[in-house]
């Protein structure tokens, strides 16, 4: 009996989660600039309106920032996670706490304090300053994901490789990296998505080079642009879902294949 109550609740909760998300595709195909029921007819003109150069530039900007942030954050996370899991360091807790600190600080504070810093040292706002802000937000995520992965990692494997005559680089490349790969991919995905969707810090730091969320924010003020924005949201949703399914398939394939080459 309890099972059934829980299942009913789960379905109800799922409906609550999906209600706002369904609004996006429904009204993105509605042939009216006003977003209200009843629907007036089917159109794809809002999707045609997406061929807008400012929008495409914002998309490119967001992709650039997301990729660079994901790579840098994962690299930093990898080094730091190795340090805190495989070495007995004094001040380990302090270091971990410091890297995780941005999780406990509201984004608005991170955004304006970085804005102050860049203004004070006279650096112009650009995509690079957005990357800096996103690095701060993403590093704790990378660290958490990779520390969890390193904790299940047997350092004896690296020693065995060294004992068998591999140098440090080949040991990293043929032992550490393949074993860490699922963690690395998880970290890259998580940080890319976080950066790609981050609005507030980018709003303060992007200057004239709008990222996609900053562009969307600028469009929300114009009622006539809204259906186009909904079309954009629908596309982002579809692409993300396809990527998640693909990533999951790749992950399953990776499990079947032997991870470490001979």
């Amino acid at each position: 009996m309890k099972n059934r109550t829980l299942l009913a609740y789960a379905c109800f909760y799922l409906a609550f989660l999906y209600l706002p998300v369904l609004v996006l595709p429904i009204f993105s195909f509605n042939n009216s600039a006003f977003i209200a029921f009843p629907l007036t007819g089917f159109t794809t003109r809002w999707y045609e309106a997406l061929a807008d150069s400012a929008l495409q530039q914002a998309l490119v900007n967001s992709l650039k920032v997301g990729v660079v942030t994901a790579l840098l954050s994962t690299l930093l996370g990898l080094l730091a996670a190795k340090a805190v899991t495989q070495y007995r360091l004094r001040g380990r807790g302090v270091a971990l706490g410091m890297i995780s600190l941005p999780l406990f600080i509201p984004d608005i504070v991170l955004g304006i304090s970085l804005l102050l810093l860049l203004g004070t040292i006279g650096l112009p706002l650009s995509l690079a300053s957005v990357v800096l802000g996103h690095l701060l937000i993403c590093a704790p995520f990378s660290l958490a994901v990779l520390v969890a992965r390193f904790e299940g990692f047997d350092p004896n494997l690296e020693e065995a490789s060294a004992d068998l005559g591999e140098d440090r680089w080949m040991t990293f490349w043929r032992v550490t990296f393949p074993l860490m790969l699922p963690g690395i991919i998880a970290s890259l995905l998580l940080t890319f998505i976080t950066s790609f969707d981050e609005f507030l810090v980018a709003y303060f730091l992007s200057g004239t080079q709008a990222t996609l969320p900053v562009y969307i924010w600028s469009q929300l003020r114009f009622p006539a642009r809204l259906p186009m924005v909904l079309a954009l949201g629908t596309i982002i949703l579809c692409v993300s879902v396809v990527l998640v399914v693909l990533a999951e398939k790749l992950r399953n394939q990776g499990v079947k294949k032997p991870m470490v080459g001979a």
């Binding site: 799922l14 989660l17 999906y18 706002p20 998300v21 996006l24 969707d197 609005f199 996609l212 969320p213 969307i216 924010w217 929300l220 924005v229 909904l230 954009l232 949201g233 629908t234 982002i236 949703l237 993300s240 879902v241 998640v244």
Partner: peptide
């Protein structure tokens, strides 16, 4: 449960 979160926070 996570699909609804795969689109823009703003939207």
């Amino acid at each position: 449960l996570t699909i609804p979160f795969w689109t823009s926070y703003l939207l």
